[in-house]
Design a protein around this nucleic acid. Structure first.
Lengths: 334, 334
DNA sequence: TTGACTTATGTAACCGTTTACATTTATTAC
DNA sequence: GTAATAAATGTAAACGGTTACATAAGTCAA
């Protein structure tokens, strides 16, 4: 039963190491941060003791001193869409190469939830926040001001936004599709898009389309952002009297549903109806027929966001606005 | 230029609050943690000052004292696969409801990277680790012992594993598919699976199939775990002299590629070749024809992992092994 | 009013590091 | 061998909170 006492083996502290090594805490600390002014001999000795006591420094104590947690928080609407996962994957990878960690929170696209999660993130020591889209709640702004942390907007490029932004000119990019439609002589367009509430990127893409006066036969349909949503919208189109030349999906996920459903109804793509996607997800080139889509370099976005935020954190260098481009990939659905 | 001085407005500390509110630090701390023993009057007063100075307590100092960071680390092979994102989304959501944060790191499926990322996670204060699969490196085990943090294995149920596990009996679940094949009188089976190195779940699924002596005409193909991988494998099948009744994909992602490629080659599903998936991703029910698949309740896995780890962290209650079940969803590709 | 007891507040030690500064030890030049 | 200089080590004060314990203020019965 004496093991009960032993089971309370508290983690060794730097002080413990100093004591058993017969040196001062400062020396141990120096060894830990491999300062040049330590004899190889003592260094080795201390390192041995560290091993022996299987000591590892407390991140909290360290953070308290240095004021740095090396943690960045990211707020995304959901993890359920590949586009965000891809972004976060790249972000995490790059942050990790800068020795920073990524904490992810989901917001459901709700500014209120975003604020709450941001609070949690900041309370746990995030040194910066990466958010999606440029729309923030007032509470969020106040919070950020209070904590005085940098914020980077992603997926949306707007140098006049409240925070530096790294992303796309969504309105302009959606015009790439319209140019393509002109080229293909598609005049009747049905646009299927995800929910616009709390999604300024979608709104912007729509704005881009609406502001283009080359088209006067455009129908807009809002659908749930899923393959299922694409299927449902397609069924509505089929059973309505719409006769679009092309269905423009503001997300490949929707386009996949459209392709499936058109096919299920023996409607030929692109002869009867053409289909165009957005995002160029991994499988887009493999659909039957291969999906014409717009490639957004989401991984670059993650990489840039990581680089910018780390530069700022490490050297105070101001965060740049970065405009990323989109590319139209012409394939066989148009 | 006097603003230079002002720009160095350091964040208010608890001490500052105490001072301007004319109370002791202890009182402020009590207000912060709403201890019952504070007069409503002083409480209000202190809260006002807190507002006024826009003070917010330092998470590091707090963590240093309490020893708690309320942070959990998760290690997954990649964020590029929906199955992990789904899991992490659920995990994050549930952790968040327990007032904990999730830090995500990707390992690329490499035990070495896993170890490195785990080190980083622990160094930044993660109180627990959630990992995928039961295979760990020795270094990892040593690390965990040193930090003395709980670890939960996911995607793999094995009460005899080194750490508590929450997941599936992968071998048993893959037999669900085999039972179905018997029922459908499919005798020639081609199995397409992702890389097995560093993926014990896939190995286990394969083990389950190999150990089933009802089949003697089984071909195994390893492919990159992507739609593209599925396409390539299918082309190999077509150009080989294999004549499977059914192609069993150990991931829906592969199955999607198979469906596309068979369709592209005008091979009828299921009459010429049947297809079976695994994971039941969101779109599985919408493919043409709808994909028969095996549903794994990945979101439950996330939820359970969060609950178990929080219970442990909050009350020392030991972590349970939890076996989750898989369900065969019969659809039209078989 | 007083003593006994409860409640509110204050004091100071502590959590585990880093680091400026002081001190000791080693090196070099003469 | 000694003074001057450089290098290694030690001391103690931060960092910003929490909390055990001490003390002051209120409450209430007799």
């Amino acid at each position: 039963m004496s093991s009960i006492k032993n089971s309370t083996k508290k983690k060794a502290t730097l002080k413990d190491v100093a004591h058993t090594a017969n040196v001062s805490v400062a020396t141990v600390s120096r060894v830990l941060n491999d300062s040049p002014n330590v004899t190889k001999k003592t260094k080795d000795h201390v390192n041995n003791v560290i091993q022996e006591l299987s000591f590892s420094p407390s991140p909290m104590a360290r953070a308290l001193n240095t004021g740095r947690t090396r943690t960045v928080g990211a707020l995304v609407p959901t993890l359920d869409h590949a586009i965000f996962s891809k972004f976060l994957g790249a972000l995490e990878k790059q942050l990790s190469s800068h020795k920073h960690s990524l904490v992810i929170s989901t917001t459901n696209g709700s500014p209120q939830t975003e604020f709450e999660q941001a609070t949690a993130l900041l309370n746990m020591g995030a040194e910066a926040l990466i958010v999606s889209g440029k729309t923030r709640s007032q509470e969020f702004d106040a919070l950020v001001k209070r904590f005085n942390v940098p914020v980077i907007i992603t997926s949306y490029y707007d140098p006049k936004a409240d925070y530096p932004s790294i992303g796309y000119d969504n309105a302009a990019i959606s015009k790439l599709a319209l140019d393509h439609f002109i080229e293909k002589k598609y005049t009747a367009v049905t646009v299927i898009h995800g929910p616009t509430s709390d999604n300024d990127r979608t709104r912007d893409r729509l704005r881009g389309i609406k502001s283009d006066n080359r088209f006067n036969d455009v129908t807009y349909m809002e659908a749930e952002l899923s393959v299922d949503g694409g299927c449902q919208a397609t069924n509505e189109i089929i059973s309505s009297n719409q006769k679009p030349n092309v269905i423009f999906c503001l997300s490949d996920v929707l386009a996949l549903g459209v392709i499936f459903e058109l096919q299920r109804n023996n409607i030929n793509i692109p002869n009867d109806i053409a289909v165009m996607g957005f995002d160029n997800l991994e499988w887009a080139e493999h659909t039957v027929p291969p999906l014409t889509s717009i490639e957004l370099s989401v991984k670059d976005m993650g990489k840039h966001a990581a680089d910018e935020v780390c530069h700022f954190l490490n050297s105070g260098k101001p965060i740049n606005n970065i405009k990323l481009s989109g590319h139209l990939l012409k394939r066989k659905t148009t």
